[in-house]
Simulated scan of single mutants.
Amino acid sequence: MAHSSFESRRSALQLTAGLGLYAALARPSRAATPDLTREEFAGRAWSENLSQADATLRYLAYYAHQLRRPYAPPRLAALPDQAVVKAFDDLLLIVFHTADQDVARHLLQVHEVLLQRGLAMPAQLQRSYDACYSSRLFAPAAQLAQRFPGQLEVSPLIHVAADAGIGVPTLIRLVSGRRELYATRYVMPLRPTVIMIGDPGCHFSRAATDALTRDAALMRRFDGTLQLLAPHALRLRFDDYAEWNAQHPALPMAIAYHWRGWPMLDVRSTPVFYFFNDGKVRHVAAGWRDDTAKDGLIAGLAAIGL
């Protein structure tokens, strides 16, 4: 898991510059990348098997190069209806992969034009809300819910601690019996720690958890160090997480508040086990085809001295 000096510098820039980084990337992207449709670009980005951080930079560079100016609010009025609908879909793809607040605001502007023209569909209204909520623009999300009462699937309120947020490792935790969420900063222990990226809707995450809970000896080796972490997603499926935690009280699942706070992890694939010691990743075990995957966990535990 070693990083070159360039990669470390890029990660630092990503965390500090945050949402403005795509502007710096626009010029090299324009020189190196021909104009691509949304489908062509998405297919290329997928085929390159990029890390989450690198994929996000690529999507934001694509936005800066091909979408931001053509779909700028002053130009939207002159676009035909079909082009405005396409603008919404193009920007939604970027939000889906980046949870970028600037792009989410841009998406809202496009949705407003669709509303003014009488073209907005219920699915677009829901996606606009989800884009705000997932990028942690809670005020615009609440305004949409108030403006369109009864027309949205509204996600629970997230209480964010003062020291938590987008740029630091932050967990969203569920409180049993309450439809409220609490986001708190996660401080990586120096002692051996294991983080499992999982999802309630992932068959393989369920298989991995069931195998662990059936193996008392292996669970003892984890020694209470295992933290389950669900990916940051466009839609927060509260009921799925509540059901999971009710069924797995010994292995409750928290949710990543924002992927930017977890640069040491890739929170897109499930299940993946990250083994930490002294705050550094020492081993990664990905996937769960069957119980032979336990070998990867045993190797990971040995790598961190458990």
Score class of each variant (00 low, 15 high):
258 H>K: 00
95 V>D: 00
108 L>Y: 01
172 I>C: 06
233 A>D: 08
5 S>C: 03
135 S>Q: 00
19 L>C: 01
84 V>G: 01
69 R>N: 12
147 R>N: 02
209 T>Q: 13
287 G>S: 05
259 W>S: 01
109 Q>M: 06
172 I>Q: 05
297 L>K: 08
139 A>H: 05
203 H>T: 12
294 K>M: 11
86 K>V: 12
77 A>C: 08
78 A>I: 10
115 L>Y: 03
127 R>V: 07
10 R>I: 04
53 A>H: 07
232 H>S: 04
249 P>D: 13
102 D>R: 05
145 A>K: 08
57 L>F: 01
72 A>D: 11
179 R>N: 09
90 D>E: 09
275 F>E: 05
160 V>D: 02
299 A>Y: 12
293 A>H: 04
100 D>F: 00
290 D>I: 11
175 V>Q: 15
96 F>W: 10
216 A>Q: 11
185 R>E: 03
87 A>C: 06
65 H>Q: 15
72 A>M: 06
138 F>G: 00
229 L>R: 07
274 Y>K: 05
151 Q>Y: 05
280 K>W: 10
220 R>V: 15
66 Q>E: 07
19 L>G: 08
15 L>M: 05
213 T>A: 13
230 A>P: 08
162 A>W: 06
213 T>C: 11
177 G>Y: 14
58 R>P: 00
134 S>F: 01
76 L>W: 02
189 P>G: 14
120 A>K: 02
78 A>V: 13
73 P>Q: 04
98 T>P: 01
43 G>D: 12
79 L>N: 08
52 Q>S: 03
26 A>V: 04
143 Q>A: 12
227 Q>I: 15
18 G>M: 00
24 A>Y: 07
141 A>M: 01
112 E>Q: 13
225 T>R: 14
1 M>H: 10
84 V>M: 03
239 D>N: 15
277 N>H: 15
86 K>A: 14
48 E>L: 15
134 S>Q: 02
260 R>F: 00
295 D>C: 04
90 D>R: 02
240 D>C: 12
129 Y>A: 02
185 R>Y: 02
122 P>M: 07
238 F>V: 09
113 V>R: 03
207 A>M: 09
25 L>Y: 09
122 P>Y: 06
253 M>A: 12
212 L>F: 14
198 G>S: 14
221 R>K: 13
221 R>Y: 09
1 M>Q: 14
280 K>D: 14
46 W>M: 11
117 R>V: 06
214 R>V: 01
199 D>Q: 08
99 A>K: 03
50 L>M: 09
2 A>C: 15
46 W>T: 15
175 V>M: 11
5 S>E: 13
233 A>H: 06
188 M>W: 10
121 M>N: 05
158 I>H: 01
47 S>E: 14
140 P>L: 04
292 T>W: 04
53 A>G: 03
75 R>H: 13
86 K>R: 15
109 Q>P: 02
5 S>I: 07
165 G>Q: 05
183 A>H: 01
148 F>G: 00
5 S>V: 10
47 S>Q: 15
152 L>I: 08
185 R>W: 03
188 M>V: 14
299 A>G: 10
290 D>Q: 06
268 R>H: 03
192 P>V: 09
262 W>F: 08
208 A>V: 03
126 Q>N: 04
282 R>F: 09
161 A>E: 14
204 F>C: 10
171 L>H: 14
70 P>M: 10
181 L>W: 07
79 L>M: 12
76 L>C: 06
